[in-house]
Simulated scan of single mutants.
Amino acid sequence: MRLLRPLINRVLQRHRFRGRATPLERLPSYPYVRLVKAYAGSPIAPALGQTIEEMWASSHLTRRCKLLMLAVVARGLGCQVCAFEVGEALQREGLHEPTLTQVLTHLDAPDLDVLERLLVRFARDTIWFEPAALQRRTRGLRDYLSGPQLLEAIGVASLANGLCRLGATVMGHS
């Protein structure tokens, strides 16, 4: 057996290979671009970029509503990098800093519409993932949202949680 080890080792070494860097097709231009750049070269970056891009392309919820959900999750998880990017995007959407602070502190503000109020609270409930409370909140949303809107809200909240947790692994937080 000792004599065969070098031969077996050579055979096994030939079948091993390292993965190749996966280039991004183009540099994204939306919030969370820093996170996608942090994973550049890995197979995660293009998949992550495409997922985020498709979230922004979907029209069932407004861009502002999605950004508010992302901001609440980023604040709840203490992801300063993510919160900063989303905060800048919300300011470009016309939401001023005092209003954003009020939304993040109280989950409400006079400038929010009914749908945004509901989804901001829903996003906050998804952070700790307590199934019974989350299911009650989701059932309550069925009366106010269409089927596609509800699915998109669940998807945005899930993606927001995932993005903040991924960000904690590759970006510095203070």
Score class of each variant (00 low, 15 high):
residue 12 L to R: 09
residue 13 Q to Y: 09
residue 14 R to L: 15
residue 16 R to G: 11
residue 20 R to V: 13
residue 21 A to R: 14
residue 23 P to D: 09
residue 29 S to Y: 03
residue 30 Y to C: 09
residue 32 Y to L: 06
residue 33 V to W: 02
residue 35 L to H: 03
residue 37 K to T: 14
residue 44 I to D: 03
residue 44 I to W: 01
residue 49 G to C: 05
residue 53 E to F: 05
residue 53 E to P: 06
residue 54 E to N: 14
residue 56 W to H: 13
residue 63 R to S: 12
residue 68 L to D: 04
residue 68 L to I: 08
residue 75 R to P: 02
residue 78 G to H: 06
residue 80 Q to P: 03
residue 86 V to E: 02
residue 89 A to S: 07
residue 89 A to K: 02
residue 92 R to S: 13
residue 96 H to A: 12
residue 97 E to M: 10
residue 97 E to A: 13
residue 99 T to H: 07
residue 99 T to P: 02
residue 99 T to G: 08
residue 103 V to C: 02
residue 103 V to R: 00
residue 116 E to W: 05
residue 117 R to M: 10
residue 119 L to Q: 00
residue 120 V to K: 00
residue 121 R to T: 12
residue 123 A to D: 04
residue 125 D to K: 10
residue 128 W to C: 10
residue 132 A to F: 10
residue 132 A to M: 10
residue 134 L to N: 06
residue 134 L to M: 11
residue 135 Q to D: 14
residue 137 R to H: 13
residue 138 T to D: 00
residue 141 L to T: 05
residue 143 D to L: 07
residue 143 D to V: 10
residue 146 S to L: 12
residue 151 L to Y: 09
residue 151 L to T: 13
residue 155 G to L: 09
residue 156 V to R: 00
residue 157 A to T: 01
residue 162 G to Q: 05
residue 163 L to E: 00
residue 166 L to D: 02
residue 171 M to Y: 01
residue 173 H to R: 08
